[in-house]
């Protein structure tokens, strides 16, 4: 254990993108009042995969690695739609998954928002439309914001989430 703590102290803090912190500082007042009013101090996201290739999930997981450390912005992923403010939707809407996605949306308490992550939900890129895909997702769900990319890189996701907050 002592070796681990040695390593821990020598490595120090790896979190990057302090420019985002600066940006955040600038809009913090705004966000704070918004987050406090609408989200009780923090933004809870439920990620729902409706047929992605799993790269969007990998990038969302990367958001909690030491470089990005999303939690510090008061934004975090929750385990149940019932705990969420935002449903983050990735992947093309498949025929088999659609009823479950709609159910998850129904279970999310009001007020709620849907953010489309990556190029799949709205544009199905690069997949062609087919019988097994119910597209685009905004025919079935009210999509408030879209974070483009295939997949969007972690930094692009953070920026996209901040843009979403500014939009509200």
């Amino acid at each position: 254990m002592i070796r681990f703590w040695n390593k821990r102290i020598k490595t120090g803090i790896l979190t990057e993108n302090t420019e985002l912190d600066q940006e955040l500082k600038a809009i913090r007042k705004e966000i704070k009042s918004l987050i406090n009013k609408r989200f009780a101090g923090s933004l809870a996201i439920r990620m729902v995969d409706s047929g992605s290739c799993n790269a969007c999930e990998a990038e969302c997981n990367a958001l909690s690695n030491p470089y990005y450390n999303l939690d510090r912005l008061g934004i975090y992923f929750v385990a149940s739609p019932r705990h969420a403010d935002v449903m983050l939707l990735s992947g093309v809407m498949t025929f088999n998954m659609t009823p479950h996605v709609l159910n998850a949306y129904k279970q999310t308490p009001e007020p709620k928002w849907v953010i489309a992550l990556g190029d799949c939900p709205l544009a199905q890129a690069p997949f062609s439309p087919g019988f097994a895909i119910k597209a685009p997702a905004d025919q079935y769900l009210p999509v408030t914001h879209h974070i483009p990319g295939c997949p969007p890189e972690p930094l692009a996701i953070i920026r996209g989430l901040l843009d979403f907050l500014k939009k509200l």
Partner: peptide, 22 residues
């Protein structure tokens, strides 16, 4: 098979180079 996107059918009729990005 919740994520069944029908890719086998989707690629029919495409050339090898068109199929690559999928």
């Amino acid at each position: 098979f919740y994520k069944y996107r029908g890719i086998e059918k989707m690629l029919e009729g495409k050339s090898l180079s068109q199929a690559k990005s999928i």
